[in-house]
Structures are given as C-alpha cells and as structure tokens.
Design a protein around this nucleic acid. Structure first.
Lengths: 243, 243
DNA sequence: CCGCCTTTTTGACACAGATCAAAGAGCGGC
DNA sequence: GCCGCTCTTTGATCTGTGTCAAAAAGGCGG
C-alpha cells in the first residue's frame, strides 16, 4: 500500500478551497484545519481503505479520481460512488465504512485524523454545514445512479455516462473544449454502470458508428452530436413542470 | 390530492420522538418544533410531492410508508427510496426535489413549513446534527441498493428484500414474531427492485416452493429458513476482516 | 525497435428476465 | 351473495446482455 506523505500546500492556495469541506470556513477556521492536515498520494489501482477496516482518517480528494465499491460473495462488484476533486471520504460519527475505497487514477488526498476532525465538526458549524451539503449532493447523485442501474438499457447507461463526463469537463475547464478525458478503463466503467466490459466496448463503438461521439484515442473522446446524445440517455428532459 | 389536517399529538408522546429529526432535541427545542408542526394524512397511492414542484414544507414520516421515485421519458420508473416512520422528507437549503414522493400505504406526516424550519436548523445544532445522521444513513442505504440494482440476480434481489423486511419487523416489534407484513403490491416491489412484476411473483413463489418463506396471505409472510434466505441474498457475510 | 503484457475489440452462443397473453384470486360495493 | 374491479399467478416466447473465446491494439521496458 504505497502511500507517500507530501508536503502540504497552503489552504488559501488550495485548488479545492472553495468547494471542499472547508468551503464555508473563514480564515480562523482554515488555520485550525491547516494545523491538522497532511497529504497522501496513491498510484492508480491502490486501495486506500478496505471495507470494515477501522477508519483512522477522513479526507478530501485534492487531485485525481477515487471510487467507492461494494462486492458480493462471489466477486461481482459494483462501484457505488465516484469521488472527484473536492469530494469527501469518511463519515463523522462512524469509525468504519461499508465499502472499499480505491484510487482510480493517481490520486492526492488532504487527510485529517479522525478524532481531532470530529471535534472540529462539533465546534465549527461552517464545517458541519458544508459536510451536510456534500452528503446531500452525494445522495442526489446516488439516486440518479439508482435509476440508471435499475431501469436504463446498456445504451442509455453509456450515453448517460458520456454525457456526464462531457458536461463535467466542459464546466471544470471553464472553456468550451470539445475533447473530454475518459478517466477509467472499460472494466472500471463496467463496474460503475452495472455492465460487463464487453457490453461497454460494444456500446461505445455503436455510438461512434452513429456519429454521436468520436475517439481520438482510447482515453479521449469528443461529443459530435449533443442532441442525439441527450436523446440516447432516456432521461426525462421535462423539469417536472405541471401543465 | 386529498390531504387532511389532523390534530397533532404532543411531541413528548410521539412514537418517533427518539428516532426522527427531533431525536437529539432537548425540551426547549422540542417546544419550538411543537409550535411549527402540523399533521397531514394521505391515502395509499396519493402523490405527496411532484418532482420539480416548489417545496413548501419538510416532514417526518409518523406512520405508514412513503416512497421516492424517478421516471424516464418513456415511463419506466424506479423507486430510489423507501421512507418508513421517523424518516425525513425534504432537504434544507434546496427548494425543489428531484423525484416524486408518493404514499405507498396510508400515511401520516408531521410537517414543518420550510422557511421557519430552515431558520431552526441554523440555530439549533441538535437538529442539524440529527439531519446529518439521517442523510448519511440514507446514503448508506442508497449504496446498498446500488449494489442490488447493478449486480444482483432477480432471486438475490427478492431474497435481500425479504430479509430486509423480516429484520425490520423483528426489530421494530421488539418481539420475535415470525410473521412480517409486505407493505407494497408486486408492482411497487418490482419498481423498487428494478424488475417486472411477473418476475417478482415468480421469485416469491420459487422461494416459497423451496420452503424458505411461506405466505399466509398475499400481504404477510413468514421466514422458514433464515440461513437459506441469507445465502440467497448473495451478500458477503464477511465483515471485511483482513486475514 | 522488438517482445511481452494488459486492455480492448469482435464474434458466436446461451440464458435470465422481459414481454405478451390469459386465467385465477381476493375484495369491496351493492 | 354476486358483480366487477384490481392484483397476482402462470404460461409461452422473445431478446438484450452476459459468457466464453480469441484476435487485435496499445503501451512500456529493455
């Protein structure tokens, strides 16, 4: 489990300062966090935490992608969360987690020892409030994923996944770049979408053949027809307005 | 949308006093809640809230079962949450919800107008803390469900569902009663498990034929072989201990 | 630049669960 | 107690996706 400690950057210069668990903190509170944080790095594929293992720290993702996954008796696995920069790992008030946490890409975490962090949560409402928002956002995402896993076809699953990646890369790059990264292997995508890797491959190629997306290489794609892509997700575009 | 106001019972005598959003409140805080609450009743099948509709109140389930569900363009639907007594509806800081809320059985809610409730959340850490716990519990449940929806077979889904109902009815009745209620129709169960109602029916009867469960009538069952039932869920019984 | 290892693609086939259809059960209203 | 409704069961068939297998494409170290 090769985890290296790195020197921490200053909170005020942190790339996730405005979105992570510290987003609402003022300068004083930030100083407290600064004093208890440490950085850890992981290589793609490393396991960060095992299910049931005592949880010694909580953390924010600073850079890279981590995933939460659950496994059945016979080895079938399902990703139950994808953690991107500013997302939070761990839950105050519980010393265990019910899933494995793995580095999907090379990863940097900003870690806090659990005990002092929990004390901080009790005392600073800004951290508690932000933690609550993050949890509720995750809950929303989990529910969207339940609809996908329970009711969408393989084609719809892939289209939804592609659309999500494209939207995210458009917003976070804050430019209208057309090329997006595919941050996982076919196998990982399959575990995320509740499919097999063969089906993932077939559906990607099917969308490509139809001219909806295009691949420059295996890990980069471009959306050619956003309308058709949106149609293919099966989502109800109607915002729920009552007529 | 037949919703009737009932006279409220006293918070101190409320059946969900110790588990709902008010669980950690002291007497003073309870008095504040008492002042802003009102009860509403719904008949089985009533829609409580529509997706996207402005959210005028938040609520705790006092009695009965409510469900959260999402729908695709063509009408396929997936339940994304089952709300039992003491569960909470609504999310502070957001005026809309992303799913429909429906009464699965006859239902009683303890409602709070959103604006005053949000002010209360800001001021009383006990409510905020409890809300956080409830959200995180729901997140855990959502993740278990993602594993079920993405990777379990029809048989495993039904076994998991039955096991969940049996465990719940055992704990909440606080006696070792053997008969449990099935609080939903086959169609609702299908929407919860990501199956069709025919498959639900077939799998129930298959478990019955094998002597694992038994039905006295369509809405009550008894677990005859808990070991076999547990096996049939496909879950990894190992708590994640590392050898 | 070559060879080895991993990831991805492609093909053939099987099967779990969906779909379509119709019969049976349960239950409230009259 | 009978009618008419909804919910459930059962049967026959179809199909999307999984499974098994093997070839192709990258990618990396030497």
């Amino acid at each position: 489990m090769p985890k290296l400690k790195l020197k921490a950057i200053k909170c005020t210069e942190c790339p996730i300062r405005h979105r992570a668990v510290c987003a609402r903190c003022d300068e004083d509170e930030l100083l407290l966090l600064e004093g208890m944080k440490s950085y850890r790095s992981y290589k793609a594929g490393d396991t960060i935490l095992w299910r049931g293992e005592p949880l010694e720290f909580v953390a924010s993702v600073v850079d890279g992608v981590a995933s939460l996954s659950k496994t059945l008796e016979d080895g079938r696995t399902q990703m139950v969360g994808l953690l991107l920069p500013s997302d939070f790992i761990g839950r105050p008030g519980r010393s265990q987690i019910e899933f494995d946490v793995t580095a999907t890409s090379d990863l940097t975490l900003c870690c806090f020892d659990r005990a002092p962090f929990e004390r901080l949560v009790e005392e600073t409402p800004h951290v508690a409030q932000r933690l609550m928002e993050l949890a509720l956002d995750e809950l929303d995402a989990a529910r969207d994923w339940m609809l996908l896993l329970g009711r969408k076809t393989a084609r719809e699953k892939i289209a939804t996944f592609v659309e999500m990646l494209a939207r995210r890369s458009r917003s976070e790059a804050s430019n209208s770049q057309v090329v997006s990264k595919l941050p996982m292997t076919r196998d990982q995508i399959a575990n995320y979408l509740g499919l097999t890797l063969e089906t993932v491959s077939r559906q990607f190629n099917s969308l490509k053949k139809e001219g909806i997306i295009d691949f420059s290489n295996r890990h980069e794609f471009e959306v050619k027809d956003i309308i058709a892509l949106n149609d293919a997700t099966g989502d109800d575009s109607d915002g729920g307005v009552i007529f």
